[in-house]
Design a binder for these strands. Structure first.
Lengths: 226, 226
DNA sequence: AAAAAAATGTGATATAGCGCACAATTTTTA
DNA sequence: TAAAAATTGTGCGCTATATCACATTTTTTT
């Protein structure tokens, strides 16, 4: 457990930028930075929650055990807080978080974090903004899963990675077919078939996990029209 | 637009209880209380958002226009804040809110509300807790909609009204069949059929919107097993 | 490099639930 | 109170997608 000097950290969250030097010192004494590789579990569902988790770099999937199989709720790109709702809504994690790329995480003591909220209105305001944005993102997800059919869901997920995560029409999918199925709420087999289909229709170029979006407008249309 | 004296309001939110007398006076001058009947729209999707909405009494549905039909995201019982995410995540409403019973709402000026967060750490902390709890509730919803089949979804919705909203196994459903379908993400026809089925199996007694749960354990089991 | 394990693709089949059509009932309007 | 409108119930066929089974490919282990 190293003690990174938060004061000199150059990947501070918007909220942490509002902390004064003294508070940053306190933060540095109540934080531990950890590296995770793909597939490594960062936080575990149902485990007691004593930390706020700040994803400093990397990519993380949020998932829970559904009645049948795992459900991936969300993909978070750094920089981003993870457990704000759990920390302040309940003190047990309601989901697991697993790294899907090399990821650096800061575990911040909940009490310390709570103190900052009480002491520093600007900090609190920023956290509230973050939580607001996060919840809006969840809404989009819910809609996407609710009323689209399988092709639309896959299209949506691919556009999400292209636009939100990698900022490019060519990328390596950080998920297996099964995981993509868990994210979109369909079966692995359907995912496969849709990939084959998109590849044949020259909408995508698929080589394993290497994806290139060839016809973005059409993919967008498929995503929107369900 | 009346000017209710917040100081003497006896249905204060947990957060408002943290405000001092002076702040309560400010609140009173920047708030307007409005009554809504069932079906009346409280806030509208895509409209600019200038207020935080506090539901003082009543019952509200949160809904958005999906690609095909309306999707009901959530049912909120008073006391509860509504637009925290919209206010602090974006300044346009990402959803509509409609009263489904007689409902009293306080519209609080966003700037005033934001000032309280900056000034009063206890207030901010309480709001963050509220947002956390709200988001956890959303998670439950997402799971419910993701991996259950129709009977399980309807069972889940009915148990939600019985336990969370009315605290009784006998209640009048505040939604039409279509709305219940929009909440559970299935069709109106399927909802009808499931009601008939549950009624025949003596799991429910259904008379229009008047519902009595006769076999709660079985309903629970159906809800859990999908 | 060979063997074992895991992930992926694909055909065949089964089915849950949607969409349509229309009848019956309830609610609203005039 | 009658007429119109909205809501609800139900039978039936259709389709999207799950499920199963197995071949193929890729990755990991030894």
């Amino acid at each position: 457990m190293r003690n990174p000097v938060c004061k000199f950290c150059d990947i501070k969250s918007q909220a942490a930028l509002k902390l004064n030097d003294c508070q940053l010192d306190v933060l540095g004494n109540n934080i531990s930075q950890v590296q995770f590789g793909p597939g490594e579990i960062i936080i575990k569902q149902d485990a007691p929650n004593k930390s706020v988790v700040y994803v400093k770099s990397g990519l993380v999937k949020i998932h829970i055990e559904g009645p049948i199989r795992e459900k991936i709720l969300n993909i978070f790109k750094a920089p981003s807080y993870l457990c704000l709702h759990s920390t302040f809504g309940d003190n047990v994690n309601h989901f697991s978080a697993t790294a899907i790329e090399k990821t650096t995480v800061c575990f911040i003591d909940s009490i310390t974090f709570g103190n900052f909220i009480h002491e520093n209105g600007d900090f609190a305001y920023q956290i509230i903004q973050d939580m607001g944005k996060g919840e809006l993102k969840n809404f989009h997800n819910l809609i996407n899963n609710a009323q689209k059919q399988n092709m639309g869901r896959v299209a949506d997920a691919l556009l999400f990675f292209a636009k939100e995560i990698y900022g490019s029409n060519s990328f390596t999918l950080p998920l297996s077919r099964q995981e993509l199925a868990d994210l979109t709420g369909i079966t692995r087999e359907s995912t496969s078939r849709i990939f084959t289909n998109f590849n044949n229709e020259k909408i995508l170029n698929v080589k394993g996990r290497k994806i290139t979006i060839l016809n973005a407008p059409l993919l967008k249309q498929i995503s929107v029209n369900g």
